[in-house]
């Protein structure tokens, strides 16, 4: 479980997050949604400590992340995995070396144990026979899968996904979404997904936080989001032609 309490963040004069509080539950896919520039990516980066919050608290299972020194933060970070928008795979390493990287750094496993774990993770994300390929040789969807495999290599307690579907076709997007949800349930981890993709919302939105102009505007789940009469959510959800058509049919 991750709890953020009243966090605010400004870049210079620009206030990006205003007093945001959320409770991200364990064993569920928690979605942070909102329009581009609403502050959702800044929120996830504040939670993992890539940006320092100006005020507020971030609690990882009641452990106050903000007040920790850098050494203790690194210990927490070893419990989390993150899938980045552009996958952020190390270009100089092969798929196998990318997934093995966190294991080499922290696991204390033997080479053969690490290799077994790498193959298990790659099989889990349905990526076989790609061990010796470099990231540049992979498609966008394959890169995301490697990113997920790397994120789960150390059995994380927390999984963060920043726009996991960006640049992917609708079918691959659904595969990645389902994979994230399956892993969340299978390992009973706290997963936070930042997205603006309504397909993802409807596919895996077990808990949804809608950020609007840096504020937590609404929270609910994939069923309640279609029924809310909140104007800003309505504009976000029914922005696309297909959603408008669906709405008119109902």
């Amino acid at each position: 479980m991750i709890e953020v309490k009243n966090i605010s963040k400004a870049f210079g004069e620009k206030q990006v997050l205003k007093d945001v509080s959320c409770l991200f539950e364990r064993g569920k896919t928690n979605l942070i949604i909102g329009a581009s520039g609403s502050g959702k990516s800044v929120l996830i980066k504040c939670i993992v400590g890539l940006h320092e919050v100006d005020k507020g608290e971030i609690l990882y299972d009641n452990r106050d992340f903000k007040s920790m020194d850098i050494v203790k933060r690194r210990e927490i970070r070893r419990e989390l995995g993150m899938l980045f928008q552009a996958s952020a795979l190390f270009d100089s390493l092969t798929v196998e070396q990318n997934v093995m990287f966190p294991l080499i750094m922290y696991s204390g496993m033997s080479k053969s144990e690490m290799l077994d774990r790498v193959n298990f993770c790659l099989k889990r994300v349905n990526l076989v026979n790609a061990n010796h390929l470099y990231p540049a040789e992979l498609s966008g969807g394959m890169q995301k899968r490697v990113g997920i495999a790397r994120a789960i290599a150390l059995n994380p307690k927390y999984l963060f996904c920043d726009e996991p579907n960006s640049g992917l076709d609708p079918q691959t997007s659904i595969l990645i979404d389902n994979l994230i949800q399956e892993i969340t349930h299978e390992y009973d981890i706290t997963t936070i997904v930042v997205t603006h993709d309504m397909n993802s919302v409807m596919e895996i939105g077990e808990k949804i936080f809608f950020i609007y102009k840096g504020e937590l505007w609404w929270k609910g789940d994939k069923n309640s989001i279609l029924e809310t009469d909140n104007k800003e959510i309505g504009e976000f959800v029914y922005a696309s032609h297909i959603m408008k058509l669906l709405k008119s049919k109902h």
Partner: peptide
């Protein structure tokens, strides 16, 4: 610099690496 702009440095930090 390329590692920075492609978030590879963020990935290292997230793994708890200096």
């Amino acid at each position: 610099g390329t590692m920075r702009v492609t978030e590879q440095i963020d990935a290292l930090e997230i793994m708890g690496i200096n």
